[in-house]
Design a protein around this nucleic acid. Structure first.
Lengths: 238, 238
DNA sequence: AATATGTATTGATATATATCATGTTTTTCG
DNA sequence: CGAAAAACATGATATATATCAATACATATT
């Protein structure tokens, strides 16, 4: 039945990792002149692992496009941080400073792994939006899918309990980021814990438990999903 | 110093209730013809308290504008629900279905109190965005401030503990919704608890404690903030 | 007015998860 | 290399908050 499949799609979209399945293709709606204008006002920068791309509280002067790598967007308080979303290759970040009345970043962005990033002048970006309604529509579409992703993470972090969140993140990493059952995760246990919204100690204990139950295999940073079905069940129920 | 005040503004924006201080004024950028077109494709509907305006999983056919009343936007699972945001008068809702690739509501919207709502045909809305870049820019601005508000709620719900969340909600209700120290809150304790992301029993216990410490006064649905400073302190530290 | 039905309140108990303490392994770098 | 510093791991304990149970109060219904 069609109704059932709609429902499935909807629940499947709810995930902790905030990574959509499609890539950003808004630049296709630019005219050649606009493309040139944008290129002239774009710089490409290489970042090492763990470097800060922009800092919460500073003025937003650029829109960020991830050519290569993996970013995290997070809010910082005293010692804790809340990861709002992670941004994989071929996606935009920092769009929230467009026309929002405040031109200050409400979050920080940093790299998980060495990354290549294009930084586009925000005023030029704004100007093109103001003159190209198709481009503006595309940006609205991107903002909206970001929003929906963030709602999903919000839901997961607040409603699921820790095994469910961990199972979810592992599935997301496998299915959406690496697109493989086996992957090298270049994150420390601490970073993985932050992504799951729990403590480092707990993530380690839980990984061990999942390994003991033969749902995953881990060897240092090498992860392998052994039992997708069971992990999905834990995501939904645990 | 300017830097300090920027910082204050930034932290002040982080709140649990998701209500911005400014009202939506995007319709000012419409041409007279567009205004007429929009009006012709808008219906005004009156809702009672607790009625559902739109249901998660259904097709989004309208953009919602709150003329009068108070709405909640929430995701439903089995028995729990996560309140994503609350929408006061003179604000738009349901914008996330514009160009997001999926035209299905990822959340439900219902009224807290009797409300008057304008429902604008989503296709007409899309068409106007596609032809009026200024309007599109305004919508991007609204989406972005919504997003920033939602990040704030996400942060509050996940990082603060329950007294901080309750203090925050009480302050928000007083400062942003009712704009008075004393107000009649037409929500049940259960609804207030959901808004704070905790159980009904706990919200009652905590209200009692705040009353015992003379920070608030409560008599049924009548709330009065007695000590704003102390509540702010609890919001930041508790 | 009396019964029923939901809402509000209070207390006792359970539990998921954080925190603390401590040891081991791996990585960094002078 | 060898020392210092991270990162990883595991167990014991603490705690915030949910859950459960039971009563009081308010509101609706016949």
């Amino acid at each position: 039945m069609k109704l059932a499949s709609t429902q499935n799609q909807a629940t499947e979209r709810i995930n902790t990792c905030t990574v959509g399945l499609n890539r950003c293709n808004c630049f296709l709606s630019l005219t050649p002149e606009e493309q040139i204008l944008l290129d002239q006002n774009t710089v490409e920068v290489k970042f090492g692992a763990g470097e800060m791309v922009c800092k919460q509280g500073t003025f937003a002067t650029h829109i960020i496009y991830v050519c290569k790598g993996l970013l995290k967007v997070y809010m910082e308080s005293k010692h804790e941080q809340l990861i709002l979303k992670i941004i994989p290759e071929e996606n935009l970040a920092g769009l929230n400073s467009l026309f929002s009345g405040n031109n200050v970043f409400v979050y920080s962005i940093s790299t998980y792994i060495p990354s290549v990033i294009k930084m586009i002048d925000i005023n030029v970006f704004r100007r093109i939006i103001n003159q190209n309604a198709q481009f503006a529509s595309d940006i609205i579409g991107i903002l909206n899918s970001n929003m929906i992703q963030t709602y999903g993470r919000f839901f997961s972090i607040t409603q699921r309990q820790s095994y469910g969140r961990l199972a979810d993140i592992l599935l997301c990493l496998s299915e959406r980021i690496f697109r493989k059952q086996e992957f090298i995760l270049e994150l420390s246990r601490k970073e993985l814990a932050e992504l799951c919204g729990m403590t480092t100690e707990n993530v380690i204990r839980m990984l061990k438990k999942l390994r003991d139950e033969d749902l995953i295999q881990i060897d240092g940073k090498k992860f392998s999903i052994k039992n997708v079905e069971q992990l999905r069940k834990i995501r939904e129920l645990g």
